[in-house]
Design a protein around this nucleic acid. Sequence first.
DNA 1: CCAAATATGACACCGAGTGCCACAGATGGC
DNA 2: GCCATCTGTGGCACTCGGTGTCATATTTGG
Lengths: 187, 187
Amino acid sequence: MEGLRDRTRRAVRAELAGRALELFAERGFDETTVDDIARAAGMSKRSFFRYFPTKEDVVFGEIETMGEQVAQEIAARPPQEEPWQCLHAVLRGWESRISAQADAMRLIESTPALRTRLLQKRDEARTRIIQALADRGMPPLEADLAAAAAGAALDAVAREWLRTGGAVDRLTLVDRAFTMLRPAFLT
Amino acid sequence: MEGLRDRTRRAVRAELAGRALELFAERGFDETTVDDIARAAGMSKRSFFRYFPTKEDVVFGEIETMGEQVAQEIAARPPQEEPWQCLHAVLRGWESRISAQADAMRLIESTPALRTRLLQKRDEARTRIIQALADRGMPPLEADLAAAAAGAALDAVAREWLRTGGAVDRLTLVDRAFTMLRPAFLT
DNA sequence: CCAAATATGACACCGAGTGCCACAGATGGC
DNA sequence: GCCATCTGTGGCACTCGGTGTCATATTTGG
């Protein structure tokens, strides 16, 4: 039973993330040092790095274990389900979780360093998705193409959403993107 | 006429890049400091940064202005050409330039920091490609999806190529990927 | 030959991130 | 209640990538 230990740790993480986002909103990401964040949360720079591996990671809360989770969700789907349908369904659910953090996404998209970090995380997630698809019996190249296409769809959705100033419904966009981008080799 | 000045500059850049790649091959990217590279080329760390903006960039030679060039090549294509065909043709030519630097690509794909940098460059290129497609009259979301899909195809090709140990012909792979991934909304 | 532009080195500096150590407090068995 | 242990923390020194500044060659062009 991991109770108190974990709970305080989560609380401190949340505190740090909160303070950080405040400072980022005020001064911008690059103009805020890790020491600023740590001091604002009443601790030392050294301790900050005991809660987050990098300064960027303080922005990506739950998004952190994205790859692993998505891969598991794919594995949990009915095995005979069509791959593109499967990706659509899983990432659709994921997108709804993202929409909840609209301001974080805006910060990410407008900060090069964070944008880069997001690309990294997506890339890592893609690797795991390929593996998950391969486990369903898809040939490597096809799995790779499908995963890349799905990632591309999400990415395009994120940008279109920003382009329209957040007016459109993200889920609708996801559906449209997945329909439009369905690869030719997937029936 | 910019002759000698530019030529010596290019020579120094080449010298730096050469030394850097040697050291990277010996000790690895992370284990080589900028100071090591600079000293190996007989100059100071400060001067290194007068030739390359970052340590990563020493690996990406011509790849540097990728985005700009690709956008121009797209603009130079016959206006009535089908977008997917257009992307295929342009990136096909680009891929052949990449194949020439197989060892650099291997280094990049096996070094997280360089892989990240490549993602960045591709992302920047994608932005310009979207613009180039939009200039041809494509709606933003479609241009975005097409550009993202094309990037995904290249990425998948790079990985499949590594997967097979460089055995397959890259251009053939590109053709296959573009055929397989052709988005449904593009005729 | 001289003045302006350019290249370079040295130095100080910043910020992210790490290793190390010493110290506090909580935990758990006796 | 006591002692051993484990965990969290701060502080410090350090590495490395990257930048600003200045003083000093070296080159270029008139």
